[in-house]
Design a protein around this nucleic acid. Structure first.
Length: 293
DNA sequence: CCGCGGGCCTGAGAGC
DNA sequence: TGCTCTCAGGCCCGCG
């Protein structure tokens, strides 16, 4: 489920209760996530303060006072929920928290901020991992990630360079986290529509023979940034699983132009096309065959 | 190295 | 009502 805007929405929801707060108690009800949690997972967190909560692509990174970093990923169906204690709670009062966690609340953080943070993930494609901060740059999960799409370094020049020799479709290339990180199926479809670029086009055709970006690369970079910014502003897209940390739905699904809209008219003014669904590299692509060239 | 397809899981929805 | 089938927002791995 969660792509960059959903993960960023979650980060913003966790920030006030997690950053600067200490793990008082950690309950790992189920350790068999994408990869098994280490046996001493709770012990390594308890007593540590979260000095910073960052996001890299679709990963959340909690920098701990112990010098370790807690890496978290939501997989396809993961979500975080924050419950806040009412009023000031005495030290130790967390023991009396009405803990009625549901079947898929696999990990719970009791924070010194008074918040109970629950990680819920029915499909268990999500993950949590602890690594020493000094080894973060060598972490295999993060090392190969391409640029952050909202950073200035993600430019038409850079996109053209990474797509220049790719034989695959531009759709598949943009889903490749080494090309640009944080995009998933929804936002790739939406960005391609916004840029009026066909998902079937060969990735290399957004670069000139010289390797420099052409007009399509310029439009694509602009479209990717614009779609992501709008989606973050809307709190992400809720199809089935994504929730903000207060349980509210995101709103961006109402602004989809093509995703999950097969058979509907293209919303581009004067286009008149009908949104089509095709399968590329085993995944659904939604696009307008009339205006996306 | 590259690109594709399978696999990991559960749940929702469609069709019978 | 209930069964079976398909599909889902991600990512790793092995194959050709």
């Amino acid at each position: 489920m969660p792509e960059l805007p959903e993960v960023e929405t979650v980060r913003q929801g966790l920030l006030p209760v997690m950053q600067g707060a200490r793990f008082i108690q950690v309950d790992a009800h189920r350790g068999d996530l994408r990869w098994p949690l280490p046996k001493d997972f709770a012990q390594r967190l308890e007593g540590q303060t979260v000095e910073r909560l960052d996001r890299r692509a679709k990963y959340l990174l909690a920098y701990l006072s112990s010098g370790e970093v807690l890496i978290m990923h939501l997989g396809m169906s993961g979500s975080f929920r924050v419950a806040q204690a009412r009023g000031i709670r005495a030290p130790g009062a967390y023991y009396h928290w009405p803990s009625r966690h549901s079947a898929h609340d696999h990990v719970e953080f009791h924070m010194s901020s008074g918040a109970l943070i629950s990680f819920n993930d029915p499909r268990r494609f999500g993950m949590m991992k602890l690594v020493p901060q000094a080894e973060l740059c060598r972490e295999p999960l993060l090392r190969a990630l391409g640029p952050e799409p909202l950073a200035d370094e993600f430019s038409p020049h850079m996109l053209a360079r990474s797509c220049g020799r790719k034989q695959t479709s531009i759709k598949a290339a943009l889903l490749d986290q080494k090309v640009v990180s944080g995009l998933g199926n929804i936002y790739v479809c939406e960005a391609l529509h916004r840029a009026a670029v066909s998902p079937k086009r060969r990735a290399s055709t957004i670069a000139k023979r010289s390797g420099l970006p052409n007009e399509r690369a310029i439009c694509l970079v602009e479209a990717i940034k614009a779609v992501l910014r709008a989606a973050i502003k809307a709190g992400g897209s809720s199809l089935r699983d994504h929730r903000r940390t207060d349980g509210a739905l995101g709103d961006f699904q109402h602004e989809f132009c093509v995703y999950d809209r097969a058979g509907e008219p293209c919303p581009r003014a004067g286009c008149g096309g009908i949104i089509k669904r095709i399968v590329q590299a085993g995944r659904s692509t939604f696009f307008c065959p009339v205006c996306q060239k």
